[in-house]
Computed example of a mutant assay.
Amino acid sequence: MKTASGICLLFFLAVAKVFGANPLVDVRTHSPTIALDIRYATATNFTGKPVDGYRSGKCLLHDPAARALAAVETELRGRGFGLIIYDCYRPQRAVAEFMAWAKAPDDPLSKAVYYPDLDKSTLVPDYIAEKSGHSKGATVDVGLLDCRSGPCRAVDMGTPFDFFGTQANTDWAGASTEIKQARHQLLQAMTEQGFVNYPLEWWHFTWKAGPLPDEAYDYPVE
């Protein structure tokens, strides 16, 4: 049985599709001060350059997922922590660029930082996929901030965002006690608001607490 809010959402999405409007919202609509570090809008990512489709460093999501992410931020802030967002909605053209990168020769610098222990040919499909859930507007990549004393600072999560390898697995057995605690804190906060973690990547979560269209988009982030 559909709820009234669910019916309204589906109606809005149907109208948006007919008129070609982007059905996604800026997460800062609900959490104006949430920290953003959208890496694919910059050269600080495994491709070494800004990625096609990222015209700004915004975080776009379907409204229920954006509200849930804002709720995570509120809960964490109440305990002296916060979120830093690395990626949200990802246009399909960006996914295509990732696939092209995966087939191109190694860049030694990128390999040293992002996949030192793996052959590039093994990154597809576990880490880089032809179709990404990010393009459906409910998947986010996030880290944890410690704001308890002075300016917020990034918590050491054991690997950088977008590190390809077993060390990035959420339950990596080799993690220190501190890193395990940080990953658990992030996992618990996200899970409580309906997000489900991708076990190979401690930062990767998809909101699954309610109905959303199973449709990938190619609207640019702007």
Rank of each mutant, 00 (worst) to 15 (best):
V51P: 02
C88A: 14
A154Q: 15
L61P: 11
S56T: 11
A66S: 04
G133Y: 10
A138Y: 08
V155M: 08
G80S: 09
W172F: 04
A35Y: 04
N22T: 10
F195L: 14
R183P: 03
N197K: 15
T42H: 15
G82H: 04
A173I: 10
G137N: 09
Y40A: 09
T33Y: 02
Q185K: 12
Q167F: 03
Y89R: 07
G137P: 09
Y198P: 05
R55Q: 13
G6K: 12
R67K: 11
V124Q: 03
P213R: 12
D214C: 00
D106H: 00
G80H: 14
A35Q: 10
P211S: 12
C8A: 11
F81L: 15
E201R: 06
A182D: 12
T139C: 03
P160E: 12
L69V: 10
D119M: 03
W207K: 01
T33R: 05
T166C: 14
N169E: 02
S31D: 06
K17R: 13
C152N: 05
A112P: 04
A189K: 08
K111H: 01
I128H: 00
T3W: 06
F81N: 12
V27R: 07
K49V: 13
T170G: 14
A189Q: 09
Y89T: 09
G143D: 01
F164D: 00
E201P: 14
T3K: 02
P199W: 05
G48C: 12
L187V: 01
D117S: 02
L10G: 13
G20F: 06
V124M: 02
E97D: 00
A71R: 12
E178P: 08
K103D: 11
P50I: 10
F163S: 02
P151C: 01
R148S: 10
V27G: 14
E215Q: 13
W202I: 10
F163H: 03
G133A: 15
G53A: 05
T206K: 13
A21M: 14
W203P: 02
R55E: 09
V142L: 10
D171M: 08
T33K: 00
A96H: 07
N169Y: 08
L200Q: 15
D52S: 14
P220D: 08
R79T: 14
V124E: 00
G174F: 03
L144H: 03
R93K: 08
L200S: 11
N22L: 10
F19G: 11
Y198S: 07
Q167P: 11
G137C: 09
H62N: 09
V27K: 11
F46L: 06
R183A: 12
F12S: 15
R77K: 12
G53N: 00
E130C: 03
E215W: 07
D162Y: 07
G143M: 00
C8G: 15
A168T: 02
G143P: 08
K180N: 12
D117C: 10
G158L: 05
R67H: 08
G6W: 15
A154F: 02
A35H: 03
